[in-house]
Amino acid sequence: MIREFLSGSPDATRDYARQFASALQPGDIICLAGELGAGKTEFMRGVAEVFNCDDQLSSPTFALFNIYHGSRQGKPVTLHHFDLYRIEQPGELETIGFGDYLSGPWISVVEWGEKFPEYRTMYTRTVTLCHAGGDNRLIQITG
């Protein structure tokens, strides 16, 4: 099943992300795909807002991943945020125990996860953002 949305602004992208994130549960692993500048970071900001950890959000591009601690409906939530843009080989992911980080009672969002198809079966949903002219973005959600 594929759902599609057309976002006309960064605010709208965050709004779609908040709607999407409201259904996430511990153990969900999201592949966040799209070219540079497509809105992945804005989408991630919306996800982080739902779990009350948006004030902690920073791009993990250089650190590879960040772990955020938040809450939803009074319950603690751990959100893992990976950015695989700078990773070249699957072995680099194995070295840091990437698969182990994905297996647990937390929610994981993996930017550039499409670069490593060997992990595709672990993703419970894939969100793809594409440029659609100007500030418009096409958001496709599968899974």
Rank of each mutant, 00 (worst) to 15 (best):
S108Y: 14
E94R: 10
E92S: 04
C130Y: 11
G8K: 15
E49D: 02
F98Q: 02
Y123I: 08
C53Y: 04
F51W: 11
E92V: 04
V77C: 09
Y16Q: 00
A17G: 05
R45M: 00
D83A: 06
A12E: 15
T142R: 11
P117R: 07
L57V: 15
K75Q: 15
S58N: 08
A132Y: 12
T13G: 05
G134A: 10
G46M: 05
L79F: 13
V127K: 13
F98Y: 09
K75C: 04
I30G: 03
Y101G: 06
A63C: 08
F5H: 14
D55A: 12
K40R: 15
I141N: 07
Q56W: 14
A38D: 04
P26D: 08
T95G: 00
E114H: 12
F65E: 00
M44D: 01
G70W: 08
F20S: 08
D135P: 02
F43W: 05
K40Q: 05
D100Y: 02
E49K: 05
R137C: 00
A63N: 15
T61P: 11
G27K: 02
F20P: 07
A23V: 12
H81Y: 15
N66D: 09
S108A: 10
H80Q: 14
E35W: 10
S9M: 08
Q56S: 07
L138G: 01
R125F: 11
P105W: 02
S7T: 03
Q140R: 15
L93A: 00
P105N: 06
P76F: 07
F116T: 09
V127A: 14
T124I: 09
W112S: 00
D54M: 02
P60W: 14
F116V: 05
R45V: 02
C31Y: 13
Q140V: 14
F98S: 03
E35C: 02
L84N: 03
P60E: 15
L64Q: 03
T61Q: 13
V109D: 04
T124E: 01
V47F: 00
F43Y: 07
M122Q: 15
S9P: 09
G91C: 00
S108C: 11
Q89V: 06
A33Q: 13
G104P: 10
H80Y: 12
V110F: 08
L129C: 04
G74I: 04
Q56K: 15
C130I: 07
A132P: 04
N52L: 05
I87C: 03
Q25P: 01
F5I: 11
A48Y: 06
R125A: 13
G39I: 06
T78G: 10
R125D: 11
S58L: 10
S9V: 09
M1R: 11
L32A: 10
D28S: 09
F62H: 12
C130N: 06
T95R: 06
S22A: 10
R45P: 01
N66F: 11
W112E: 00
L57M: 11
L24G: 07
D135W: 01
T142N: 06
A63L: 09
V110G: 04
H131S: 05
L24P: 12
P90K: 03
T121E: 03
T121S: 07
G133M: 02
D28A: 06
H69D: 07
V127L: 13
L93Y: 03
I29P: 02
N136A: 10
G27C: 00
P10V: 05
H131L: 14
Q19E: 08
H69R: 14
A48L: 09
R18F: 08
F20I: 11
